[in-house]
Design a binder for these strands. Structure first.
Length: 217
DNA sequence: CGGCTGATCGTG
DNA sequence: ACGATCAGCCGA
């Protein structure tokens, strides 16, 4: 039931991949141990025709180079000088489509996740380390692309990492989203008409707990 | 709860 | 200069 996702899975357009990644488990070997989290929110960036994309109009620089790889590589960049954001490349070589990971719920390595969290994000969100079965609390802690990366120990050193290799990959543990919501993407007001495109995908939550079948355990 | 703001730096 | 952000602080 639990299988590692191979290259073919990632070689689809960003819109398809963004939905397909919901419910998949991102696994990473970190200095503090193995960490794993189920993806609950994504955004599709559809490439050269998408004004919100770093690769709009075919822009190709040292930073965006990774986006032009075939599906299944990590595109990690720094934003606002503070936070890392992780994308998964999609489609074929030369087509810079990508999927931004915006939220996840940890299922393995809770101690490592807790220790890795940005200090500031712990304080207000949750006073102390939540119980492992408190899905809502952990979902909050990993809600947002910056927090997600912090918690899973993802940094710019992981840029261009092959997600079909060892130590950093996706797994299918059989979690199927009960319901997927589509909304416009966040933080792209400058993107003209593209700012209203419903390319953000969320697993619907009840009481702060993203709904899967079977439920997260 | 909604809106504003400072932090902080790689990238173009 | 300017963000595919976050958290703290403001006022209501």
């Amino acid at each position: 039931m639990t299988e590692k996702l191979g290259r073919d899975f990632f070689r689809q357009d960003a819109l398809t991949l963004a939905r397909a990644l919901l419910g998949k488990t991102l696994v990473k070997r970190t200095e503090r141990g193995i960490v794993a989290a189920v993806v609950t929110e994504t955004e599709a960036y559809t490439g050269v025709g998408d004004r919100a994309s770093h690769a709009f109009g075919g822009r190709r620089t040292a930073r965006t180079e990774t986006m032009y790889r075939e599906g299944g590589y990590a595109y990690v960049y720094l934003i606002y000088g503070l936070y890392s954001c992780m994308n998964v490349t999609a489609a074929e070589t030369g087509n810079p489509e990508a999927v931004l990971l915006r939220a996840a719920v940890p299922v393995e390595g809770f101690g490592a996740v807790w220790d890795s969290l940005c200090r500031t994000s712990r304080k207000k969100t949750v006073p102390g380390r939540p119980a492992e079965d408190d899905r809502a609390a952990w979902a909050k802690l990993l809600g947002g692309p910056g927090r997600l990366c912090c918690a899973l120990g993802i940094t710019r050193a992981d840029d261009a990492a092959d997600l079909t290799g060892e130590g950093f990959f996706f797994r299918d543990d059989g979690y199927v989203p009960r319901r997927i919501l589509c909304r416009p993407r966040i933080g792209i007001d400058y993107a003209g008409e593209a700012k209203d495109w419903p390319y953000r995908f969320t697993v619907e939550s009840a009481d702060g707990v993203p709904g899967f079948d079977p439920p997260l355990m």
